[in-house]
Amino acid sequence: NNDALSPAIRRLLAEWNLDASAIKGTGVGGRLTREDVEKHLAKA
């Protein structure tokens, strides 16, 4: 759900053309954090 994404995370996902549903969020309530996105990018 994009409503739970911060503007910074939305921008990062758009910049790298990533799908938020493909990344497991570790923040409060399962929210994506910058670290989650960076770890996903490191694996790719």
Rank of each mutant, 00 (worst) to 15 (best):
N1F: 07
N1M: 12
N1T: 12
N1Q: 12
N1D: 15
N1H: 13
N2Y: 07
N2F: 08
N2L: 13
N2V: 12
N2I: 14
D3W: 00
A4M: 14
A4I: 14
A4L: 14
A4V: 14
A4S: 14
A4D: 14
L5I: 12
L5W: 05
L5F: 07
L5M: 10
L5R: 02
S6W: 07
S6E: 13
S6M: 06
P7L: 09
P7K: 11
P7V: 13
P7T: 11
P7G: 07
A8D: 15
A8S: 12
A8F: 06
A8E: 15
A8N: 07
A8T: 10
I9K: 00
I9L: 13
I9F: 04
I9T: 04
I9W: 04
I9D: 02
I9E: 03
R10Q: 14
R10G: 05
R10E: 12
R10N: 06
R10T: 09
R10K: 13
R10D: 06
R10Y: 02
R10I: 15
R10L: 08
R11F: 06
R11V: 08
R11K: 15
R11E: 13
R11A: 15
L12R: 02
L12Q: 04
L12A: 04
L12W: 03
L12S: 00
L12K: 03
L12I: 08
L13E: 02
L13V: 04
L13W: 00
A14F: 11
A14N: 13
A14W: 12
A14S: 09
A14Q: 14
E15T: 04
E15P: 00
E15Y: 13
E15A: 05
E15I: 07
E15K: 08
E15V: 05
N17R: 04
N17W: 06
L18S: 05
L18M: 08
L18I: 15
L18A: 06
L18G: 08
L18E: 10
D19M: 06
D19A: 06
D19Y: 03
D19N: 07
A20Y: 07
A20W: 07
A20M: 08
A20V: 10
A20I: 10
S21Y: 05
S21E: 12
S21P: 04
S21W: 05
S21I: 07
S21R: 08
A22D: 15
A22I: 11
A22H: 12
A22L: 13
A22Y: 08
A22F: 09
A22V: 11
I23R: 02
I23F: 01
I23V: 08
I23W: 01
I23S: 01
I23E: 01
I23N: 01
K24W: 05
K24D: 09
K24S: 10
K24I: 14
K24H: 10
G25T: 05
G25M: 04
G25A: 11
G25P: 09
G25V: 06
G25S: 07
G25D: 03
T26E: 03
T26K: 02
T26N: 04
T26M: 04
T26W: 02
T26D: 03
T26I: 04
T26H: 04
T26S: 09
G27M: 03
G27F: 02
G27V: 02
G27P: 02
G27K: 02
V28E: 14
V28F: 09
V28N: 09
V28S: 09
V28I: 13
G29I: 03
G29F: 03
G29A: 08
G29R: 06
G29L: 06
G30H: 03
G30N: 05
G30V: 03
G30L: 00
G30E: 04
G30P: 02
G30T: 03
G30R: 03
R31T: 14
R31P: 04
R31G: 08
R31N: 10
R31D: 07
R31H: 08
L32K: 01
L32P: 04
L32C: 07
L32I: 15
L32Y: 02
L32D: 00
L32M: 05
L32T: 03
L32V: 12
L32E: 00
L32G: 00
T33W: 00
T33V: 05
T33F: 01
T33L: 08
T33E: 04
T33A: 01
R34V: 15
R34E: 14
R34A: 12
R34T: 11
R34C: 14
R34P: 09
E35H: 08
E35T: 09
E35R: 09
E35P: 05
E35L: 10
E35V: 08
E35A: 11
E35K: 10
E35I: 08
E35Y: 08
D36T: 00
D36P: 01
D36S: 00
D36R: 00
D36M: 02
D36W: 02
D36A: 01
D36N: 01
V37S: 01
V37H: 00
V37T: 00
V37M: 03
V37E: 01
V37Q: 00
V37R: 00
E38R: 08
E38A: 08
E38V: 14
E38L: 15
E38T: 09
E38Y: 15
E38K: 08
E38G: 04
K39I: 10
K39L: 13
K39R: 14
K39Y: 07
K39W: 07
K39P: 02
K39F: 08
K39E: 11
H40K: 04
H40F: 15
H40G: 03
H40R: 03
L41Q: 04
L41N: 03
L41P: 02
L41D: 03
L41T: 04
L41M: 09
L41W: 07
L41K: 04
L41Y: 08
A42S: 10
A42K: 12
A42R: 13
A42I: 11
A42F: 07
A42Y: 07
K43E: 11
K43F: 09
K43D: 11
K43V: 10
A44M: 15
A44S: 14
A44T: 14
A44H: 13
A44E: 12
A44D: 08
A44L: 15
A44R: 12
A44G: 09
